[in-house]
Simulated assay, not measured.
Amino acid sequence: MATDDTLQCQVEQLTCELKLSRQRSEQFEKAYNQLLFQFKQLQRSLFGRRSERYEDPDDPQGLLFESSEARDESSLEENDASPFDGDKDLDDAVSIAAYKRHKKTKKSFAEHLPRKEVVIPVSEQDKTCACGCQKNLVDYERHERLNYIPPVYEVIVELREKVACPKGCVGQIVIAPKPKHILPKGKFTESILAHLIVSKLDDRQPFYHLEKQFETRAGFSFPRQTMARTVIDCVTPPTTTEQFAKRRGHWLRHWGSGCHITPSS
């Protein structure tokens, strides 16, 4: 009898535990379904039902195989919900002109760019017709290509003539005057000065970048210290040594502030 009672107690205890586990599983399932529903609502509100980012987990390919009847019904509903329904007058309608698609035209390059015409002749074999006659030039097939001419670095050697009297008269030796330059004692032409100023102030190129470009592309050394000193001297060259001594500090503080030597990192 004692054994039967213990077995019955164990069976009742197991049934109670089974009921509790079933209740817990049902509660978990309800909570999961509720969270899944909230997630769907949130996803639809963010992306929309027809967005590519929205995907129904229950039917992931439902939108791909949407029937044409559903689409027709949706289009009919949209047509039924017309803004001219109800008491609105048809006079409020706005007529829109039909849209005309313009043909795409080939854009040519800027008109101020110089043009250089290169004639490409036809081969001598194609200039003769099958009947034996010589073909005449009718027209040209035009096609434009943008060309780039790289900079050319050259050294200009100034040879000033020196003339003298063949009889050896004193004081009759004459030398041709020096041409006027921005920097009379400088070793650079105005084109190099303009290139340095534009590259530094307009193109925002530091002098150590220009130094590397001269070394790698042109093959000669142009120190950045020389570049900075040359650009600073181009501001307002002084007339006397005293003015240079007075203005040098002012130039370096104001005018030369944008032309300093940028150290390489």
Rank of each mutant, 00 (worst) to 15 (best):
A2V: 12
L7P: 04
L7K: 14
C9S: 14
C9Y: 10
E17F: 06
S21E: 11
S21I: 09
E29C: 07
Y32F: 09
Y32W: 09
Q34C: 10
F39S: 15
R44K: 14
L46C: 11
F47C: 08
E52H: 09
Y54G: 00
D58G: 04
L63G: 04
S67I: 04
S67C: 07
S67N: 10
R71E: 13
D72C: 12
N79L: 14
D85S: 11
G86D: 02
D89W: 08
D91S: 15
K100L: 11
H102M: 10
R115S: 06
K116D: 02
E117T: 01
E117W: 03
V119Y: 02
E124D: 14
Q125M: 05
T128R: 09
C133H: 14
C133N: 15
N136Q: 15
L137N: 00
R142I: 12
R145T: 13
L146Q: 03
Y148K: 05
V152T: 13
Y153T: 15
E154M: 04
V155D: 00
E158S: 06
E161T: 08
C165W: 05
C165F: 03
G168W: 05
I173K: 14
V174W: 07
K178P: 03
P179E: 08
K180P: 06
H181P: 00
G186W: 01
G186H: 01
A194G: 09
H195G: 03
L201T: 04
D202R: 10
D202V: 14
R204T: 02
P206Q: 00
H209V: 15
E211Q: 04
E211K: 01
K212M: 03
G219I: 05
S221W: 10
Q225A: 12
R229L: 02
T240E: 01
F244H: 10
A245T: 09
A245H: 12
H254W: 09
G256A: 05
G256Q: 01
C259R: 01
T262S: 06
